[in-house]
């Protein structure tokens, strides 16, 4: 299912949940795992010196220093590195999301695994947007492969998942998310829940909608699910369909909790304003922050198309 997995890590305990998932999955599917740590930010004026993200000190991009960072990483993950599948540990300098995307492209990664928060000392405030690494957002939107975001320790192994939740906004990107959700459910042999939330958040600003209008929208959504997704599943009947109404991210979270979702698969809701600029963040971000299970963001067909 996966041949090349990229685990992007801060190397801090914040990423331990993501680390476990990444190493386990790579081992299970005998995939090559690249552990990538962007250790330094470039300085103003772009000199060859960088600020180490963990120590805050100014360091050079010297090969000795890179080697030292690599060793540190190897110590951090020493237990997992005994796994039998091929593992490559890499440390580099740059703007994290740029380097993660660059590495994913170079290796042709089938999956990127990452944590959601960038700094361990921010844990107390994780629910505020300011501390969510925008790295995750940028990577999730642009990556050509699914991005699995693990914000909390994941208790169940991927291959023992029993409920895959696919949340759609019917965008083009959501087609790719569906393919990944469908393939995953089929591969693992578990149930696929196809879900859509009719957005009625306009109610909050006083734009009332008649109940029959809402019900019509719900019915339309069900039709679209049947046409867009159900029709594409061959001899796979372990699924259900649900359409609720409300604020999309809240409904997605409630639905996932009710169905004991092990993973939520979704695309970035494309009709929204640029998530970097949205004040409360995108639906994906809200779901990632609040969900108890990992969230996979899939926006491109490259690695999940039927023939991929």
């Amino acid at each position: 299912m996966f041949k090349q997995i990229l685990f992007a890590t801060t190397g801090s305990p914040t990423c331990d949940g993501a680390a476990n998932v990444a190493f386990d999955m790579a081992q299970k599917y005998n995939a090559t795992l690249k552990v990538l740590h962007v250790y330094g930010f470039p300085s103003r004026g772009y000199s060859p010196f960088v600020v180490d993200v963990r120590t805050g000190d100014t360091e050079s991009e010297h090969s000795d220093y890179v080697e030292w960072v690599r060793e540190e990483l190897q110590n951090t993950y020493s237990k997992q590195l005994q796994n039998k599948n091929p593992i490559v540990v890499e440390a580099r300098v740059g703007v994290p999301h740029t380097e993660i995307l660059r590495a994913a492209r170079k290796d042709g990664a089938d999956l990127i695994v990452m944590g959601a928060h960038t700094r361990e000392d921010d844990v107390g405030a994780t629910r505020f947007r300011g501390v969510v690494g925008s790295t995750m957002q940028k990577v999730a939107r642009k990556a050509r492969c699914p991005v699995l975001i693990v914000a909390r320790p994941c208790m169940t192994c991927f291959w023992y998942f029993s409920n895959v939740i696919f949340a759609t906004d019917f965008s083009k990107a959501a087609d790719s998310a569906f393919m990944f959700a469908y393939k995953t459910a089929k591969e693992i042999g578990c149930k696929l829940h196809i879900f859509h939330a009719v957005d009625i958040s306009a109610l909050q600003v006083g734009r009332e909608e008649h109940q029959t209008t809402i019900e019509e929208k719900v019915a339309q959504a069900k039709e679209r699910i049947a046409k867009n997704y159900v029709a594409r599943m061959e001899d796979f009947d372990n699924y259900d369909v649900a359409v609720w109404e409300g604020i999309p991210y809240v409904e997605i979270l409630k639905f996932a909790r009710e169905r004991s979702g092990d993973i939520i698969v979704m695309a970035h809701h494309t009709r929204e304003v640029d998530p970097e600029q949205a004040e409360l963040g995108s639906t994906v971000e809200q779901v990632v922050l609040r969900a108890a299970c990992p969230v996979a963001s899939v926006n491109h067909p490259d690695k999940v198309a039927e023939d991929a």
Binding site: Y46, S47, P48, F49
Partner: peptide
């Protein structure tokens, strides 16, 4: 710092 950047120019014909 600026000398080091100048070294990059000398060695690679680019700044970085």
């Amino acid at each position: 710092y600026i000398q080091d950047t100048a070294h990059s120019h000398s060695a690679t014909y680019n700044q970085m």
